[in-house]
Write a protein that binds this DNA or RNA. Sequence first.
DNA 1: TAGATTGTTAATCGATTAACAATC
DNA 2: TAGATTGTTAATCGATTAACAATC
Lengths: 212, 212
Amino acid sequence: MRKGKISPAVIRRLPRYYRHLDDLFKAGVVRISSSALAGNMGLTASQIRQDLSCFGGFGQQGYGYNVERLRGEIAEILGMDRDHTVVVLGVGNLGRALLENFPFTRYGFRLEAAFEVDQTLVGSKLGGVQIYHYDEMERFLRTSPADVGVLTVPGSAAARTAKRLAACGVRGIWNFTNVELPESELPGVQVENIHFADSLLTLSYFISEEQP
Amino acid sequence: MRKGKISPAVIRRLPRYYRHLDDLFKAGVVRISSSALAGNMGLTASQIRQDLSCFGGFGQQGYGYNVERLRGEIAEILGMDRDHTVVVLGVGNLGRALLENFPFTRYGFRLEAAFEVDQTLVGSKLGGVQIYHYDEMERFLRTSPADVGVLTVPGSAAARTAKRLAACGVRGIWNFTNVELPESELPGVQVENIHFADSLLTLSYFISEEQP
DNA sequence: TAGATTGTTAATCGATTAACAATC
DNA sequence: TAGATTGTTAATCGATTAACAATC
């Protein structure tokens, strides 16, 4: 289905396509043309057709795209059907926010466990997820390997936690710390960063620029 | 100092430059060459020189860049010296995480207030910030305008809260909801999104791809 | 059939890399 | 001075847009 190497620019747009198609699907829309979707998303019709054609011909001349089918195809391309497993490292406010509110299952992830140093939290559950002591990580992952580790530890613990996760065989790290992880020391591990500070500073730039 | 229009690609890299230069500065490094910084950051020296030259000649032939000066210049370009004001909308787990843990001041933002519908929180403080009722927003912002609103409300309240913020004259919205804000209805407001789901799905793509 | 809309090829635009003269 | 390193111009690469034949 996939035709050769997909460009990073296209990949970064896929989740957004999925989100819009899911909204359309839930709204009962059956078909959509590239130009209607483009209007929706603030892209050009040309770009949408170009992007989707990387993966195969999902549309039909004179008709457009079937919303449900296209949504399903993109879900599959994104790996949402693979039942990935995930563990959370660090149950501070942010870890807690993710455990209690983020709909991992909606995106094909199964939340297996959380790890935390604070003994008052160890042994309890949050969002239905068992919290173990941070040092139980290796033992736990030996018997129940996880695909992804969510890094919500303090910045000072980020690099070494990442290395321990890599040693435990995770294939992805979802990094919420404002620390740049040394990818050279994390072979075979995909790192996806959510850098709050970078995002806020980008906003700062734009609001400063418009009012010099 | 700024030379013409700066490309989006460059702007997105500026916070990362700042972060690395800040680390170097704190580590006591006085000067750095474009190629050393490039090695650090996983970019090319050429790109760094090209990027920085958008804003003027901060370097010196045969020497490189003075870390403290360059850090300061980038801080200024990003508007970190402008004492922006910010309010938080919605004090769930995520709002709380930001109030208690995110170092707004380090990035030049002054946290003025938070707004929440839950009466049990209204009137208390979190991270030193007063929590008002959600409906006090207009009254509060009339007397103390804010530059940025942080959107940590439930998705269902996102669009209408954004519109109210825009009507109150904020110039930026830092959007943590997984909802696409209708920018056409937010004239003059810069929106910067942190879409957790998009980020996780990107990671999902990469770990699924490498193991087909 | 006629109208609509795709998938794809070609043209344009923007971003990155390479090269090098200028100069500290 | 000699060595290092910038800022900038030119070359390459990648991504977006335009155009249109194919076809539902």
